[in-house]
Design a protein around this nucleic acid. Structure first.
Length: 567
RNA sequence: CGGGGUGUAGCGCAGCCUGGUAGCGCACCUGCCUUGGGCGCAGGGGGUCGCAAGUUCGAAUCUUGUCACCCCGACCA
């Protein structure tokens, strides 16, 4: 591509509304342009990258035996009403009306459509298993779109859905997809982790996420330093230590703590470590009442895990201050498990401490020396807290470290949730109707492009891995309008690389060297060939990899360039 | 959805407090010059100051409303 014919539109200045580096660099490099909140045009430069990712995904999905199809983006509401998600999905679902006032949605995901298709098309166990996928624009009306295309409302997604006669075959395909995803992200060229994920309220049984590691990631990952255990913090279990609780040594003592409401205030006021204090959080119960959750004061509640407890409302919701006052006769800040008027569920770690400090359920008073079993009932225990750095790994091997990641893929065993709800059945070998098992597998194509930038950039701009670079190599001729030698050498190299099918950018815009180099670095072309009179005099080109500190001289032949690109 | 902020040329900003000819840098166009890390000089084009109402002789500036966008939070994949 001759850059004189290609709109680069790079800028030196960073747009003021771009927060994260990938968003800033994508705007500065002219890859994307914003049309509205979370809605972007992909410029020719950016689209080349998105297409590269898309093609890697397509090749690996095909190789894994999945079949590409394309479903409608606009879906009749009836299907969503049938699955129950018309009401459940909430405002993130973009709802539309046609000219007859009929309801439609712009698909944020396609379980309904594929399940409808399968129940019409797949009649026999002989037609299973199948795995259909599509690469398509999705729309999710995020409450707060941000970070450019990393969390846009409109985005490109690969979504795949598989159907099976039994759970074992679903498990086989799930592993098949796990391997395909691993190949995909390896080929893209990023550092990533596969982590256990929350299987969510839909009731699936197994789920893992693929995360690109980056400090700007929105997700926290718990990774063991002693094994391959890795989980999204949302999903990471914590266990009881298994050791018996220390015996009570202190007497229960009510102490005045005027105005001391937060755990930090109380712990400072009474000079007691946070690890020896119990905090009580009050939330809505599944039966419509309220429930108290006891946690060690230095721990944080994991709402996702809490919502799975049979006594706790799902989705999780804190009780209102009015409900708390009514039940406890006391405001938040002085609550404790001693004489709690509502059932108490204690996190494992909270249940293991003795002689603890807690609220006295009376304004301006706390207890010292409180003990489970003596001063209050032995609580029901559960896994309620967020895992923290240094916790033992749930698999018993090593300790937990926390990393940040950007979720770019998610694989999921759905079971028969949708197939059952939408009555998709097939006949088995005995002629009996059975409900197939299904799995779904997603990759955020456009998000992946942005996530790569978060991981691969420096002060000068993007550093694309070869596999998804918009161009693999850029030719920068110096003084081409003056030197016929430079111009003809650059022309010849460009034609030679093109002939070999190399994606090459030829900077024939007549810019000064500084501008050319700055642009080449900003848009992140991995390989750069500089051609000038000085080096041509020695029959040499200058080669520099985007990551290299200094250039090197190579023979002034297309062959030499091709050797570098292949090796 | 709650809280905060910002809307002035394609981008980044000043002007607003204290009403009186709409500015700067980058980008863009023309010419000359220059050519190894975003050259220099000269000239030029481009803005109903988000929108609407109000106050005023006069509004980018003051008032009210409205819309959009951004940030923090909650929520979600």
């Amino acid at each position: 591509m001759r850059l004189s014919r290609f709109p680069l539109n790079t800028t030196k200045e960073t747009p003021s509304d771009a927060e994260v580096v990938s968003h800033q660099l994508m705007l500065r490099a002219g890859m994307i342009r914003k049309l509205s909140a979370g809605i972007y045009t992909w410029m020719p430069l950016g689209l080349r990258v998105a297409k590269k990712v898309e093609n890697i995904v397509r090749e690996e999905m095909n190789r894994a035996g999945a079949l590409e199809l394309l479903m409608p983006a606009v879906i009749p509401a009836e299907l969503w009403q049938e699955s129950g998600r018309w009401n459940k999905y909430g405002p993130e679902l973009l709802r539309l009306k046609d000219r007859h006032e009929r309801d439609f949605v712009f698909g944020p995901t396609h379980e309904e459509v594929i399940t409808d298709l399968v129940r019409r098309e797949i009649r026999s166990y002989r037609q299973l298993p199948v795995n259909f996928y599509q690469i398509q624009t999705k729309f999710r009306d995020e409450r707060r779109p941000r970070f450019g295309v990393m969390r846009g409302r409109e985005f490109l997604m690969k979504d795949a859905y598989s159907f099976h006669m039994d759970a074992a075959d679903l498990e086989r395909e799930y592993q098949n997809m796990r391997e395909a995803y691993t190949r995909i992200f390896k080929r893209v060229g990023v550092d990533f982790r596969v982590v256990k994920a929350d299987s969510g309220a839909i009731g699936g049984n197994k789920s893992e996420e693929f995360h690109v590691l980056a400090n700007s990631g929105e997700d926290l990952l718990a990774v063991s330093d002693g094994s391959d255990y890795a989980a999204n913090v949302e999903a990471a279990e914590t266990k009881s230590s298994g050791k018996p609780r220390a015996a009570a040594t202190a007497q229960l003592e009510k102490v005045s703590t005027p105005g001391q409401k937060t755990v930090e205030q109380v712990s400072k006021f009474l000079n007691v470590a946070l690890t020896k204090k119990i905090k009580l959080l009050v939330c809505k119960g599944r039966d419509g009442g309220i429930v108290a959750l006891a946690l060690r004061a230095d721990h944080e509640l994991n709402e996702v895990k809490a919502a799975k407890h049979p006594k706790i409302a799902s989705p999780f919701a804190m009780a209102s201050p009015e409900e708390v006052e009514k039940a406890f006769g006391c405001e938040v800040g002085y609550l404790g498990p001693v004489k709690s008027p509502v059932p108490v569920i204690a996190d494992h770690a909270a249940a293991e401490i003795a002689d603890f400090v807690c609220g006295a359920n009376e304004k301006d008073f706390h207890f010292r020396g409180a003990n489970w079993g003596r001063d209050c009932a032995e609580p029901e225990t559960a896994d309620l807290r967020k895992i923290v750095e240094g916790d033992p790994s749930p698999d018993g091997k090593g300790n937990i470290k926390l990393l940040r990641g950007i979720e770019v893929g998610h694989i999921f065993q759905l079971g028969n949730v949708y197939t059952a709800a939408m009555k998709a059945t097939v006949l088995d070998a005995a002629g009996k109707e059975v409900v197939p098992e299904s799995g779904c597998y997603g990759i955020g194509v456009t998000r992946t492009a942005a996530a790569v930038i978060e991981q691969c950039h420096d002060a000068n701009g993007i550093i694309w891995p070869d596999a998804i670079a918009p161009f693999r190599v850029i030719i920068c001729p110096i003084g081409a309008d003056k030197s016929e030698k430079v111009r003809s050498a650059a022309d010849a190299l460009y034609e030679a690389l093109l002939a070999k099918g190399i994606e090459v950018a030829y900077d024939d815009r007549g810019q000064r060297p500084g501008s050319m180099f700055a642009d080449a670095d900003l848009i992140g072309i991995p390989h750069r060939i500089v051609i000038g009179d000085k080096s041509l005099a020695n029959a040499q080109f200058e080669y520099k990899h985007r990551k290299a500190a200094a250039p090197q001289m190579i023979p002034a032949t297309a062959q030499a360039v091709l050797e570098i690109l292949s090796g």
